[in-house]
Design a protein around this nucleic acid. Structure first.
Length: 238
DNA sequence: CCATTAAGCTTCG
DNA sequence: CGAAGCTTAATGG
């Protein structure tokens, strides 16, 4: 049987994919064309690793669609989720922080689509393309701040506050308006939330049940809608 | 206050 | 069906 060719020639990537995204927004069409011609495009199922902590950082990525969880494994073997990254952001930019291995694992939290380039192009992009470097470092700084906040939270806040904060961040970064509130835009389990907040799925389940009775949230399996964000803010500050 | 254990229920594939 | 996801209660650090 004559097998299909391993790799079909993809339709040419359209420049509009990148023109609005901050790292590329200051570039001309011609430059974006060159960048796209060097990119590989790939679709990922939900729940697969795009790259793994500790592995050689061979490529960097631009997430075009979907959501990615940045996950680290603690010395004791538990997973902790550092943050979620929405479409439109760079990913796996180890070179930017002077590393040649990935500092964390990137798991898809939904179906996802990403472009990628060989890491050796990183320096070239930074030097050749106006705004690419500064924008990248901006998002990097932003993420670092987030992770640090999380660390402080773990040390100072009680579980209820941490979970409330995690939900607020999730709806801020990845929320989608629905009729009765704001829904987290990708499938998220109580287990996932517990890994974000360093607690157990049982505690998360109890908290969500309680909040549901008070009308703050609404949840079904893998879906959470926040009906009253302000009430969560209040909770997160006691 | 919260983790752990254990048991049972629901939903998905 | 079985597996994954979720709930609830009891116990104990």
């Amino acid at each position: 049987m004559a097998g299909l060719p391993e790799r079909k020639t993809l339709p040419r990537l359209d420049e509009s994919l990148l023109t609005h995204l901050p790292p590329f927004s200051r570039l001309e069409k011609r430059q974006i064309r060159i960048i796209l011609d060097q990119a590989s495009s790939r679709r990922y199922d939900e729940g697969v690793a795009i790259f793994q902590e500790g592995h050689p950082a061979e490529r960097f990525y631009m997430l075009l669609d979907g959501y990615v969880r940045v996950v680290r494994i603690t010395p004791t073997g538990e997973q902790v989720t550092a943050l979620h990254i929405p479409a439109g952001q760079l990913l796996g930019i180890a070179k930017a922080i002077g590393r040649d291995t990935y500092p964390a694992t990137a798991m898809t939290a939904s179906e996802a689509l990403a472009l990628s380039w060989p890491m050796h192009l990183w320096e070239k992009f930074v030097s050749d393309y106006d705004g690419f470097g500064t924008e990248s470092y901006k998002t990097l700084g932003h993420r670092l701040g987030e992770v640090q906040n999380r660390v402080v939270e773990m040390a100072t806040q009680q579980v209820e506050q941490r979970v409330a904060n995690a939900l607020l961040r999730l709806i801020n970064q990845t929320g989608r308006k629905v009729d009765n509130g704001i829904e987290i835009d990708f499938p998220i389990t109580r287990q996932d939330l517990s890994e974000l907040t360093a607690t157990t799925l049982h505690t998360v389940s109890r908290l969500l049940s309680g909040w549901e009775k008070q009308g703050l949230v609404e949840s079904r399996r893998k879906r959470i809608v926040v009906r009253d964000p302000h009430a969560l803010v209040v909770l997160s500050q006691k």
